[in-house]
Design a protein around this nucleic acid. Structure first.
Length: 597
RNA sequence: GCGCCUGUAGCUCAGCUGGAUAGAGCGUCAGACUUCGAAUCUGAGGGUCGGGGGUUCGAAUCCCUCCGGGCGCGCCA
């Protein structure tokens, strides 16, 4: 339990005591109040508006209530002092030991720090990406992939059992058109009206021709479509341009637990069954040859077609069947991550869910906004293609190559996609993402972690010591104000994770890590200049009696402290799917700045 | 026209679901290295939170309205 939560409970207890003592009305126990780290240092380590929050419920002046709370909070063993400020804020200062204990909590929990017990909040499904298997994944799909994956990870960390699912739209017009386009390419004729024309279509046609796919010769679009979809998902051996959607996702660290096929829903009769049920309910109506579902009865803007006049069902019909299928598979909570261009869909999906008697409060849709690629500040264009038609593979490969590290591209995409709220549109500058300098925030973040690792490494290699286990004696040596402030920051991590999950905002984790990183690097550089380093500096070791003057316990205490930061840092990076690089090699071709003398 | 998202420093964005004097990065300017990784750090400057009303002890945050941007409004997926 974090330090804020402890105080929150303390206040709740204080209210309960005051109620039972007849000093406050019972209503105050239901009040919501904040416990937070004040922006300004003179407001203490923690502040609460509890006395203000119960103003109406208590019928007393806030400062009077604050006085009552103050007396009780001062009795708590972690509290050094309590001050009443302004209209009735309570500003608390904590004892050093309260912060030093956080180090013990972090080390005890290790990688599990900030994570809730598994599956206590039930089963959830996060559906994301679900891109049509008619082409490679584009950078806009990448945003959905990163956001969905991060949401899923957050939910896992806070106690959901999560299933990541990809819905394959392998039924209907688009895939048939795709198949027809591949066949046309194989026969060296123009693709059909509205068909697909990219280079990958020709690559696929060449491959299928070489492997004598019978469906290519026939006119059976359905059979050919199945083959093409499989190849788009699983890739074409030996053709780098067609590594496959699954491989692309894997390259950016996204793995799905399940893939559900729309075509299978049809083959299994789920779609027809669903329409039959709606028919029995009287929710369907034929107008001008098409079958409409009366979704407006469930709050949609207007009724929607489920079966076209030509007899084919619509995508929407299958989608109802799909959402219902999810509920019937036993998920307590459904999250659907979609691009902003699908937002018109939400109303009809909810209508479908409610028609089947499921609670649409358990159905959550997140619409992420568009992505624009820039190169040196100007919109990215390649030939006729606009920026958002660039594939994930192209970008990832380009960044990997520039950074000379496999995974650098994935990390950069993760960082940039997760550093902004998903409901705002973003511009990503590829040239910036490629840079291995502090201008590049991804680099800065990873650098901070590598630096922590390097300190532990140096301790082992040069001094033969390593971060010791927590003890009250050593923890008491973690006493520098910056060190205590960072312990407070570590103590905040669990509630950051919980809040980020509940708000569905992964960027909070990233901002937290950026701050943690900055806090440490600032400390690190300043103390080095003051000669008060974690380990003896090389310059100090020039002196003959440096060993006698070396405060070993302080070094050990600080190594313990470094290990704590490292632990939380790594946990956060892992949660976001960004690689925790332990050693960053010097960049090739980078010369040290010439020094002016 | 209707619906969803959005408007905060020169630029890119936070602002913990109503709290105290609105923050960070980049950029600009001024500083700090015989380095536990200077691939870093310190400081300065920079804002009528798009405009106007309202709600209350208190609003960037909630409500109304206007203005500007993005997306959507198919018997496409």
């Amino acid at each position: 339990m974090g330090i804020e939560e402890q105080l929150r409970e303390g206040i709740a207890e204080a209210f309960a005591e005051l109620v039972s003592g007849g000093e406050l009305p019972a209503a105050v126990t239901s009040a919501k109040f904040s416990v937070e780290r004040p922006r300004r240092a003179e407001h203490g380590d923690l502040a609460t508006n509890a006395a203000l929050a119960v103003q109406k419920l208590s019928g007393k002046a806030p400062r009077e209530v604050a006085g009552l709370l103050k007396a009780r909070l001062e009795a708590r063993h972690d509290v050094a002092s309590v001050e009443i400020a302004g209209p009735g804020f309570l500003n608390l200062r904590l004892k050093e030991a309260a912060f030093q204990r956080i180090a013990g909590e972090v080390l005890r929990a290790g990688e599990g720090y900030g994570r809730a017990a598994s599956a206590v909040r039930g089963r959830a499904m996060v559906e994301f990406v679900s891109a049509n298997p008619t082409g490679p994944l584009l950078i806009s799909h990448g945003r959905g992939a990163m956001v969905g994956d991060a949401i899923a990870s957050l939910m896992e960390a806070t106690g959901y059992h999560v299933n990541r699912e990809y819905y394959i739209n392998d039924h209907g017009n688009q895939v048939r058109l795709f198949a027809a386009s591949v066949r046309a390419a194989a026969r060296k004729v123009d693709p059909p009206e509205g068909g697909y024309g990219g280079g990958y279509v020709h690559e696929l046609a060449t491959y299928l021709t070489a492997h004598g796919a019978a469906a290519l010769a026939s006119e059976d679009d359905g059979a050919l479509a199945r083959i093409c979809v499989t190849r788009m998902l699983d890739g074409v051996p030996g053709v780098p341009e067609l590594k496959g959607i699954k491989a692309t996702l894997a390259s950016i660290g996204v793995r799905f637990d399940t893939f559900t096929s729309e075509d299978a829903l049809h083959r299994w009769g789920r779609v027809d069954g669903c329409l039959d049920e709606l028919e029995r309910q009287g929710r369907l109506e034929v107008r001008e040859g098409a079958v409409f579902m009366k979704t407006a009865e469930f709050g949609d803007d207007k009724d929607r077609v489920v079966r076209k006049a030509d007899g084919h069902t619509t995508y929407f019909a299958a989608d109802i069947a799909y959402q219902i299928d999810k509920f019937r598979r036993g998920y307590d909570h459904l999250v659907l991550v979609l691009g902003a261009d699908h937002h018109g869909y939400e109303g009809r999906l909810r209508a479908g869910i409610r028609a089947f008697g499921f609670d649409d409060a358990r159905f959550e849709v997140m619409f992420f906004q568009l992505v624009n690629l820039l190169r040196d500040g100007t919109p990215y264009k390649m030939g006729k293609r606009l920026g958002n038609l660039i594939t994930i593979d192209e970008i990832v490969d380009e960044i990997d190559e520039a950074a000379q590290r496999k995974g650098a591209g994935a990390d950069a995409l993760r960082y940039f996609y997760l550093s902004r709220h998903w409901n705002t549109s973003i511009d990503i500058d590829i040239e910036l993402a490629k840079k291995a300098t502090v201008d590049n925030p991804v680099f800065y973040l990873q650098m901070g972690y590598a630096r922590l690792c390097s300190i532990v490494r140096r301790a082992e290699e040069h001094f033969n010591i390593e971060p010791p286990p927590w003890s009250e004696r050593l923890a008491a040596r973690i006493a520098h104000p910056d060190e205590l402030a960072m312990l407070a920051q570590l103590g905040r991590y669990p509630s950051i994770v919980a809040d980020a999950c509940d708000a569905r905002e992964p960027h909070r984790i990233l901002f937290y890590l950026d701050e943690l990183s900055k806090q440490f690097q600032s400390y690190f550089t300043r103390l080095k200049l003051e000669g008060d380093a974690i380990l003896p500096l090389r310059s100090q070791m020039q002196e003959p009696d440096w060993r006698e003057r070396w405060d070993l316990d302080k070094s050990l205490a600080r190594l313990l402290w470094v290990r704590c930061i490292q632990t939380v840092y790594r946990a956060g990076l892992r949660l976001l799917g960004i690689t925790a690089v332990e050693r960053m090699d010097p960049l090739v071709g980078r010369e040290p700045e010439p020094r002016e003398d």
